[in-house]
Amino acid sequence: MVNILLYDGTYEGLFSVFFDCYKEKYAPVSIQKERNYQPAMFDHSTFIPTELVKSDRVMKGLRKKLSSTAFSNLTKAFFSEFEDIEMTIYEYVQLVFNNKMNIEKDYRQSSVLRISQVTKKVNREIHRMHAFVRFQKTTDNIYAATIRPDFDVIPFIGSHFKERYADQLWMIYDTKRDYGLFYDLTRLDIIRLENPEWEGNKKIKRTLYSNNEIEFQTMWKNYFRATSISERKNMKLHLQHMPRKYWHYLPEKQMV
């Protein structure tokens, strides 16, 4: 019989599970988010509640043994939401506590290599959000964008946009996870819209566009077309850099 440990889906929740495992000297075989869990016939599951006292202690211990980059990489890997990421993080944490030496650069260890690879993926998605987010200016002067990233990267993209667009109102909303960021010229807040209304493909409603929004989108499209060199056309390379899944963000890839 498999005992599945369930937690509330937060990072602190996962670390509370680690604390209990350590205390009970229990080696978990599967840790899952409660909302994702689908019981199978012979499963046995235990829900472990989040307790900040517990998670803080484990994190404090980790911070002592890891560089700050390695610690934040672990957090980024968690937000990849990969199905097996909990067990990978568990193995990584075990490795950290069972070694005197700092193991964060021992890429021969499967969990260290896996965390580094997943972090790379999450970082790439963050970078792609910096690149592919497209704001549409609305009638109330908010530059608004919707996104549907593969990983939950909203927690990691705010500072970039806040620094860059310090003098404009902006909003970036993850329509897949139904929450986002809003900057009001002074503060950056995490927001959840109540009954949001979207255009098809969950985009900002065209009726909300400010006066010259369409005009600038059209000019950008024209620019994009004019700057391409047809003699060098290479769609394979184009798709490699700009995968189809991001096209719906981009005015330059819309037909009309």
């Binding site: 970078h127 910096h130 690149a131 592919f132 994009f224 700057t227 391409s228 060199i229 047809s230 060098r232 056309k233 290479n234 769609m235 394979k236 390379l237 184009h238 490699q240 850099h241 700009m242 981009l250 330059e252």
Partner: peptide
Amino acid sequence: ICHSYTEDG
């Protein structure tokens, strides 16, 4: 940051 890529990549 590369914000877009032309069809020639």
